[in-house]
Every structure is written in structure tokens, then in C-alpha cells.
Computed example of a mutant assay.
Amino acid sequence: MKFMRLAAVAALSLATLAGVAEAKEWKKVRMGTEGAYPPFNYVDASGKLTGFDVEIGQALCDEMKVECEWVTQEWDGIIPGLVAGKFDTIIASMSITDERRQKISFSEKYYNTPPALAVRKDTDLTGVTPADLKDRVIGAQSSTTHAIYAEQTFVDSDVRLYPTSEDYKLDLESGRVDGVNDDIMVLTEWIDSDKGACCKILGTYKTVPSIHGEGAGIGVRKGDEDLAAMFSKAIKAIRANGKYKEINDKYFKFDVYGD
């Protein structure tokens, strides 16, 4: 009996040591982002990766005292890229949804803004309801919550999906679509620039939690929930110390963190 008890204690000790050995100490974090979703993440004229996601991500790394290394990945492959180990996080305006939680884990949100519909200034559209958009062509970026919302809501419209937001903007500008559905800040940033002079925001939509999720969070692989918790703690810290507001005010006219 005594031998068995000692053996059990030894086995437990080995298991504990193994668990400690497997726990990762995060000194460097590879941050995955799309790099094609302004103003949240994009490559500027000098070739530098920048945007709200990128600056917030860097501020979080500084708060956690870890080194950041940025990796760009096309949106459709961003979750597979994370799972495959190409990077350690996704910070790319990815909404926290139940469907995505089946594949990856998330930090708490770092912002939450509503969806909107942008149209050409010369449009004859006067509303943004499904009835208003019946028989119209509506664009959205594929594999996004906005694409899901458009397909499930505008059932009497011709919904067309595009690999990037830049692609649907070109089609709206040329009149090949009647409107596009995306985050209001993405659309506003474009419309306020010379490139978006053709268009305007026609209206916004109330977020649907089952589709749009709980806001944008930082995605991590299953098993790396400790890293997600580090980011959640750091988000609270930069909200409290003013760093979040400093970055927010550089890009937006109101607090995008949401309720």
C-alpha cells in the first residue's frame, strides 16, 4: 500500500513537472493580420504595415513586454494559417462568433462598431431594409460576418462576395453593384478619402449577436488560452492608462470600443 501511495505521488509529481515544462513563456508573439482592410490594417504608401489593429496590437505587446513580429495573410486563409502555426495570433478586426470559437479561441473584444451600407451618391436608393434592396446587387467581403449578414438578410437581392474590401469598392465606384455592406468605420474611412468621393453612407444596421458576434477580438490557437488572457488583461490596461484613447483618436472621431 505504501509503495503504491509513493508511486502515485511520484506519478503526480512527474505529471505536474511535465505540465510546467509544457507551459509556454511568451517572449515573442507572431501577430497575423490581413494588411488590406483600412483603416484597421493596411500597407501604406511607404510599404509599412499600419492601421488601428496594428497600432493596438503593438501597444498590447509593449504592455505585455513581449516582442511583436507581424505576418500578413490573405483573409480567407487567416484561420487556417493560425491553426497551422504560421503565426500565434489573429489581430485583423475578426469578430468573436460561436462558429469561429469552434476552431480557435479569443481574447476579450478590443473594439465593436456597427455595420453599414454604402452606395453611390447618384443612387436612387432611399433606404437600407431588405425591401429597399430587393432586386439590387449588394457586395460584401467573403468569409466575413458582413457577408453572412448580407446573404441571410438580403434574400431578394443579388449578393456578390469579394476576396477583399478593395475589390467591392472598385465595383461600387464603377456602378457594378448598387451598395456594399461592411463595418461603418471601414466604409467611412474610404468615403472620406479621395478614392471614395463617389459614394456615401446610406444607413447603418443594428448588430445581430448571432451573426456579428461580440466585437473584434484577438484570435489564438486552441490550447493558447493563456496568451488570450494576457491580451485581455493588456486591453484593460491600455484602456485605463490612456494608450487606447491615443490610438483611437488618431483614427476615429468617437470611441470604437463600444458598450
Rank of each mutant, 00 (worst) to 15 (best):
E166W: 15
V54T: 14
D158F: 06
R120F: 01
A59C: 14
Y162K: 00
K169S: 04
E173R: 09
T113W: 03
V177T: 13
W70F: 08
S143L: 11
V137T: 10
V186H: 03
S142I: 08
T89M: 09
Q102D: 07
R101H: 06
V66C: 09
A84P: 02
R100A: 13
N112P: 02
C68K: 09
F87V: 14
D182P: 14
S105I: 03
L161W: 04
R136K: 07
Q73N: 13
E69W: 01
Y111L: 07
I96H: 09
D167Q: 05
I184K: 04
K86I: 05
E173Q: 07
G85V: 06
N112C: 08
Y168N: 00
E166H: 12
D167N: 15
T50E: 08
D183S: 04
D132F: 11
T144S: 14
L170R: 05
L172H: 03
P80I: 01
S105Q: 15
L133R: 03
R101A: 12
Q58I: 08
T129V: 04
P130K: 01
R136T: 11
E166V: 11
L82E: 06
D158I: 12
N181M: 12
S143Y: 15
H146W: 15
D124M: 10
I104V: 05
G57I: 05
D132N: 11
V177S: 01
H146K: 08
D156M: 03
S105H: 04
D124I: 02
D62G: 02
Q152F: 10
G139Y: 01
S142F: 13
G57F: 09
G175C: 01
C61F: 06
S143E: 15
R160H: 02
V83Y: 14
M185D: 07
L125W: 04
I184R: 01
G179M: 03
D122K: 00
T153D: 10
K169L: 09
Q73P: 14
D156W: 13
C68L: 10
A140V: 05
D132Q: 05
D76E: 14
E74H: 07
P130M: 12
I91P: 11
V66G: 02
E173H: 06
G85D: 05
R136Y: 11
A147C: 11
G175P: 15
F154R: 00
Y168W: 04
T72D: 04
V54M: 06
G175F: 02
Q58V: 07
T113H: 10
T144Y: 12
I91G: 10
D132L: 14
V177D: 10
D167G: 01
T97L: 12
T89S: 15
G175D: 04
T123M: 00
